[in-house]
């Protein structure tokens, strides 16, 4: 099966692009997922990913940029603008974070739907909601590789600071760590990853890739470093298997990867006793 699958990947450029894209996306989400889960920000990932629906409708309804770079720049600008508000309110904690995220989530989606019905621009939002690897161009892979590099450089050299920020936020702040910067940087990284993966995984399903690897890693790993290694490996393996299976049985890639990750998590839950 794998020989045949490999032949397909070598034969078709779009499959090769999807494979490279999946690997890059897995490396980035593998690093971010444990932080997202540990910070109890799983719902925040959903809010950001769903706010991209509004970004998509504005992008295609009002700007209609040409080429993947134009689309990405438009999407990321609008998403970051929207999420600055979310990052600010969750940092201040005037309103409970989950309530704020819930309000943000539904309001941006509602605005997106209204705008979509008004503009009716003909773009197929379904492709972006659930992903479509046929839309993936070489420029998207380049964008993903740049974002993977940014994520790696933002997390790996400052690993101890991220752990301190996550584990003992108050202590870290009092000790002089710039927790505000880390909070905003985290929102920025999650937004970048979500926007860059809309074609590969879709806005609805990308959140799974940000949550399940972290939860899986916390079930399996015995130390903090192991958590991040397991999460990244889990992302990589499930991403590749998802792509191969989706190609073999002609299934949507994002949804297939989600189910494979869920099965992996289920097995870990059954087999790993802590």
């Amino acid at each position: 099966m794998f020989d045949l699958a490999l032949a397909d990947f070598l034969q078709f450029d779009f499959l090769m692009r999807a494979l490279i894209g999946s690997i890059l996306l897995s490396l980035a989400t593998g690093l971010l997922s444990p932080l997202l889960v540990a910070k109890r920000y799983a719902f925040m990932g959903s809010a950001i990913s769903h706010s991209t629906l509004l970004s998509l409708t504005i992008t295609f309804g009002l700007f209609n940029p040409q080429g993947p770079i134009g689309v990405f720049l438009s999407l990321i600008s609008i998403t970051l603008l929207l999420n600055c508000f979310l990052a600010h309110t969750t940092y201040k904690e005037d309103v409970p974070a989950d309530s704020m995220i819930g309000i943000f989530f539904t309001t941006t989606m509602a605005l997106g739907i209204i705008l979509q019905s008004l503009t009716n621009n003909g773009n197929n939002l379904m492709n972006y909601l659930f992903g479509n690897i046929l839309l993936l161009e070489s420029a998207d892979v380049i964008i993903l590789s740049i974002l993977m590099t940014i994520t790696g450089l933002a997390i790996v050299p400052f690993f101890k600071k991220w752990i301190y920020f996550t584990f003992d936020s108050e202590g870290a702040k009092v000790s002089g760590l710039n927790t505000k910067l880390l909070h905003y940087a985290f929102f920025l990284l999650v937004s970048l990853i979500i926007v860059s993966s809309v074609k590969l995984a879709g806005t609805v399903l990308i959140n799974t890739l940000l949550i399940i690897p972290g939860v899986f890693a916390f079930k399996v790993a015995k130390s903090v470093k192991q958590v991040f290694i397991v999460s990244t490996l889990f992302c990589l393996i499930s991403g590749i298997i998802g792509l191969v299976v989706a190609n073999k049985f002609n299934l949507p890639t994002g949804a297939t990867t989600t189910i494979i990750q869920f099965v992996g998590l289920l097995l870990a839950t059954i087999m790993v006793k802590k």
Binding site: P34, A38, F167, D168, A172
Partner: peptide, 18 residues
């Protein structure tokens, strides 16, 4: 203490964060 219970950090690792 508001220490995060999700991360499997040892006492020694916690001290090294500072």
């Amino acid at each position: 203490t508001k220490l995060n219970n999700t991360l499997p950090l040892t006492v020694s690792e916690y001290l090294s964060l500072a």
